[in-house]
Write a protein that binds this DNA or RNA. Structure first.
Lengths: 356, 356
DNA sequence: AATTAGCACTCTATTCATTAGAGTGCTAAT
DNA sequence: ATTAGCACTCTAATGAATAGAGTGCTAATT
């Protein structure tokens, strides 16, 4: 992507076209441009410039006799260089903050609430992708006996996520035994990442040979299953119906495809996880997505830190023709907010370290 | 709804019309009826009968010169009296059963899987509504300390549902205290419905005056919050995008409304909970729904027993023009399957009663 | 050399008329 | 009670005509 800096006037006109198109959704003609903006030039000049911009790939024609429409490349340039960043209004910030205060609970419900608010404030589809707990640090592990050969494991991670899982141990364990296993595990579990835990625990157990070897067998089963988290983290998705309200998505076929992708959360998860490799706001425009069905959409997403290093993602999905500056501001704000919330949670959790 | 029994031939024709319309989606004319079925009568006669059926409210006309289309009343009569019940094919049953076997886990994930399969096999939208745990019996309650003033409560109900909740106790409780509270609660908790538990526990505690009174204060906080389950139970919803594939929903406006309702799960929850008062298959056709936006849809739903008495619901949402017999068979089958699964779970859980 | 006026040209979208076809509803005959 | 016959109604599809928006090019202008 060679970035030959366009001359100033060209840029100005490109910016006018895109801005106008974003607002109205109608192709923009040379006359319209003159009308709304006092550039001291004639329509013909503007036409020449538009033709040039088209040759360079920033604009297109739906058909010969209609105005110009931005291409993906055009949007990209707009987002990277032309657009002026916006801030949320105080009103909006207050509204968000207020909603957030009342939401004192488990992290998972905060995430759900966040995706809902993203959707409401953007009028598009909002999402939050929870990081796989596998990469997070373990804070606590609780084992509860359910019946003869099944145990419920409850994991609390450093960042404040809670997951539970039912485990089959094909061997009878009585409650007292379980309790002491539990205690032993908790002593060794704090602060280790869920990924490494299996290996780590066995290492420690071998050093602690004085303990009864009796449990080792059971424990192996338990640990293996408890930490085999195949899940890729949760995806909270809200406001999918907003897609139907977008005039840009009048084409039934396209909408159906978009919904198919969104319906199968899995696909979306993968797409997002791939893109969420490094921090900061990211804008994915149209064909930049690896997912064919979403080529008519843009995604504005940002990451947040959960615990010490794990990254989750959040953002919105809407039509390519969206108010990028506004959306970026919105996503950015929530990203910061969640970071704050999580670091608070983490701190609280850390207040009482692993004495027991 | 006076049910003047229609003469046999009338019924026959009504049945032909509805059946044909369900299959093709096109209004049915008198000629078509004659062609496909050898009734020894002329088109004119059929027309007379159609006109009669229309006057009685079972059919309508989209416009003067088109064939007949069933009204809601027509569908209702069809479902109640004309339709012959169907069975799933062996193939289908096996496919379901197989999927089910591999799914050995927490009940919640079974529910999610079920709604997915309902959607896949029906090609409509599938749902499972989990009963509010409040009405279920408690099997076990686990308290885990998170930080100075917050405790994680994990509830396991009789039927096998698992819920967790974060509780604020504005008082420091050390882990040992918590453990003994936990033990005390568990001794008293088994088999009581979550609804009654608050009252019940206090009654018992008063009898047990010998216990330290010290904890009572904390315990009150804990219990109050732990069992204040405002949730109405989970709604698992899958295959919403299938709605878009229905030719019946070509009207953008209508689809948008349907999606709005479905998006806001809450509304759907209430609707379903209301309708799910007594057991058995229920078919809600078009305007019979209390929800305006769903007037173009039909819902086939059935209940399942969770634990001893609590009812959950499951089913499918599709266009009014659906193969009712097939859908009823499908929903019915899943309903039975879940009943079986739950009663198995319950039994397993009961195998080790409340010794500790 | 850049700008602009002027004009032919292209394509869309809307309107209107026409037509074929499907299906009804009524009347009168069987 | 049934049916043949026929006028009537409405839809859906097709095509022609037209207005309008906007371009692209050429030649004149600055």
């Amino acid at each position: 992507m060679t970035r030959i800096s366009l001359q100033e006037r060209k840029q100005k006109i490109l910016q006018i076209v895109i801005h106008h198109f974003i607002r109205t959704g109608k192709p923009v003609g040379s006359e319209t441009i003159i009308e709304k903006n006092k550039l001291g030039v004639s329509p013909a000049t503007v036409r020449n410039i538009l033709a040039a911009l088209e040759k360079e790939g920033y604009l297109t024609h739906p058909h010969t006799s209609s105005g110009r429409v931005p291409t993906d490349k055009g949007y990209r340039f707009y987002v990277d260089s032309l657009m002026q960043l916006q801030q949320l209004t105080q009103e909006e910030e207050q509204r968000i903050e207020k909603e957030y205060e009342s939401q004192r609970g488990a992290l998972d419900s905060v995430m759900q609430e966040t995706s809902k608010m993203l959707s409401m404030l953007s009028h598009y589809t909002g999402f939050v992708l929870t990081p796989s707990p596998a990469a997070d640090r373990l804070k606590r592990l609780e084992l509860v006996k359910l019946d003869r050969d099944r145990v419920l494991a409850v994991l609390v991670t450093d960042a404040g996520f809670i997951r539970h899982k039912i485990i089959n141990v094909d061997q009878d364990v009585n409650s007292t035994e379980l309790l002491s296993i539990n205690r032993m595990l908790n002593k060794n579990v704090y602060g280790i990442s869920v990924n490494d835990i299996s290996a780590e625990i066995f290492k420690r157990l071998q050093q602690e040979k004085n303990k009864q070897v009796k449990y080792i067998n059971i424990m192996e089963k338990l640990i293996q299953q408890a930490f085999a988290l195949d899940e890729e983290g949760e995806l909270y998705l809200e406001g999918t119906s907003n897609i139907l309200s977008q005039p840009d998505f009048a084409d039934y076929e396209k909408v159906r495809n978009i919904f198919k992708v969104i319906d199968e959360k899995k696909m979306l998860c993968e797409l997002l996880e791939e893109k969420v490799s490094h921090e900061g706001i990211k804008v994915i425009i149209g064909e930049e997505t690896p997912c064919k069905e979403l080529q008519e959409c843009s995604i504005v997403t940002s990451t947040y830190r959960a615990g010490d290093k794990t990254l989750g993602a959040l953002g919105i999905i809407g039509p390519k023709r969206m108010e990028y500056s506004k959306m970026i501001a919105l996503v950015n704000y929530f990203s910061k907010l969640i970071n704050k919330t999580i670091s608070r949670t983490t701190k609280e959790l850390a207040r009482e370290p692993r004495k027991k």
